[in-house]
Write a protein that binds this DNA or RNA. Structure first.
Lengths: 361, 361
DNA sequence: CTGTTAGCGCCTTCAC
DNA sequence: GTGAAGGCGCTAACAG
């Protein structure tokens, strides 16, 4: 059970014939040590394969050098490719600054207290965020999948807990803390512009139900794009984020009074439903009706799908979120606290009008 | 900078008018404390929102209660839905036993030493696994995406580092350590059986290049299934895991001497390519040619795809891997060290023969 | 049952 | 430049 516990500063000191403080100096203030001594200590460090014990360091410095990240359970088939890439980016960026990511989950939704499990009496058992904090297991949190007025932001802000979020808070008044987000409006607008260039003049929008900050942001990009290009905004249909809904909404728009020749969709899943509806009607995506999605989900690039989509620079988001968070932890002056990154359209067959495309000389 | 540091055992003891050891007893050996005293201490713990400091505990017990997991960078569009779900399952299972997951990445492939970055001189800088170990930052590792004779297993085994893997080692002789894996052969065999029941008698296989343990396991399930059903194994084609390759392989098989009426594919990505080739030829998946995939990737369920696929019980795998690992850490008697779980076929349109299906009364 | 005592490995003044 | 001493918060063996 009791492992023979690796080398310590003391053991290195013994080997090198110096005190453990000299070992510390060699590691943290090398110029304060005479070259011969330093060489001797460095040699011992290498021979013994010494590495400072992270736990002991954390206890002393009161910093675990760990960033908490809550994994939301994926309900149903997850078509969102974002979480994986984001986590990888966050992990890599954190490592570059000597931090690691600690994963956790929460069963109940909100952070804060929750009812006791025994007797129904009020209890102070704390949920995931509060628990890790109280245990001093992490120094701060990385948030993602933030929603309108996300309770987590306010909760963390009130307690002065360092955090940084992927996704703005969308709150009207308050500004709880630092975030990085994608400029969804700009992304959608670029899709509108692209479709315009492909010859479309009647561009519809397939969106989510009202109330979602992300969704309204994207709608506004569609409106703005149409306006800028001198187009009357085409018809708009809304529904929840499933491809079945997308199919129904596409049918609704195509059968409506002023049928669009192109559909800009708020998500790839909805866009996929649109593609299905086009196929059902014998219409060719791109050639007959232009379609674009948002997210650049993995399936967008598949043969037989070939969906044009707005791609989010997730790796960049992860790196920036980590920077925002760790700068707080190290007391660095916060250069900026809100970062908006521009996404870019990936053009595929679903939005290319063959005749408009100047391929043949 | 210096946070006013939350409550400690000592401060709780002061509030409750007892020594900090009594506080410890209340937490770890409640029956050793007189009920009144205990009540007083418990009340103080709640009032102060005390939670034991994880870092201090770790230092003392020499156990970080952290499991390391290396995030492999995803090359290109990742169509594999597994990592996300697996990580979530692992995190949840770990939490249930008081552990958390620590994420890290490695730039270089193999664990072990790597060349110095300065001067080319041999250096003892250690990579991700070794580093976390030397720093005592984790107690063990969870592996996934293991390959044939994965170097990580041997490396960890040699050093006596606790670990558990998702994926058997596929090594011929040695048995480096505990793993959980999916019975790929059984999964494929169930696909063969299902296609047989749909009326197919000539069943081809679309596989990966030889040499992959996972791939050969699945091929063997196809052979076994055909044999058991008294069928001569249909034609076999191999290629790398892209849907373009899948399309080419499907064409090869369908144009070959004894064209199959059904295609069992080693992966969903290859199966998707097969579906594309069928569509190109005006053949209907299911009705004309049965197709099955493996993994139950998110896109398999999409409308317009409807691919039958062998689904892996990832959540179960995650839970079992964690159990195998933590049992080692706590010195529990290892009940078993190799767990093989049965996957199950999810039947969708791509493998259902309409006339064979007894729907109409 | 309760309190005393001694570290875990590191960081950080302070003397020599 | 180098060494000595104290403490972060917890665990654990031992006395009272």
């Amino acid at each position: 059970m009791s492992e023979p516990s690796g080398p310590t500063m003391a053991s290195i000191g013994r080997v090198a014939g110096v005190s453990r403080q000299t070992v510390w100096n060699v590691l943290h203030a090398p110029d304060k040590v005479r070259p011969e001594t330093r060489a001797r200590v460095e040699r011992a460090i290498r021979d013994e394969r010494y590495r400072p014990n992270r736990v002991a360091r954390s206890l002393r410095t009161r910093s675990a050098r760990l960033l908490g990240y809550c994994m939301e359970p994926r309900g149903g088939p997850d078509l969102n490719p974002v979480q994986d890439r984001f986590l990888h980016a966050v992990t890599e960026a954190a490592e570059a600054r000597g931090y690691h990511v600690l994963l956790f989950t929460t069963q109940r939704g909100d952070p804060g207290r929750r009812a006791s499990s025994r007797g129904g009496r009020e209890d102070d058992r704390l949920d995931g965020y509060a628990e890790l904090l109280a245990e001093a297991a992490v120094d701060g949190f990385v948030l993602s999948d933030t929603t309108v007025d996300d309770p987590r932001q306010a909760w963390l802000h009130e307690r002065g807990v360092p955090y940084a979020a992927f996704g703005r808070s969308w709150s009207d008044g308050e500004d709880p803390g630092p975030w990085v987000d994608i400029d969804g409006a700009a992304g959608v607008e670029s899709a509108v512009t692209h479709l315009y260039e492909q010859g479309h003049r009647r561009i519809g929008f397939v969106g989510w139900p009202t109330g979602s900050g992300v969704g309204e942001d994207r709608v506004s990009g569609w409106r703005r794009g149409c306006e800028r290009l001198g187009l009357a905004p085409g018809p708009l249909a809304r529904g929840d984020n499933t491809s079945d809904t997308g199919q129904a909404l596409a049918a609704e728009l195509l059968d409506g009074p002023d049928a669009p020749t192109a559909l800009v969709c708020v998500s790839d899943v909805l866009a996929l439903g649109c593609l299905a509806e086009l196929r059902r009607r014998g219409l060719r995506p791109g050639a007959d009706i232009g379609v674009t999605g948002f997210d650049d989900a993995p399936f967008a690039a598949l043969p037989g799908v070939e969906l044009s989509s707005v791609e989010q620079p997730i790796e960049r988001v992860g790196a920036d979120v980590v920077r925002l968070l760790i700068d707080q932890l190290t007391g660095e002056p916060p250069a900026e606290s809100h970062i908006v990154l521009a996404p870019s359209l990936r053009v595929r067959a679903s939005s290319i009008h063959p005749t408009t495309d100047p391929v043949t000389p």
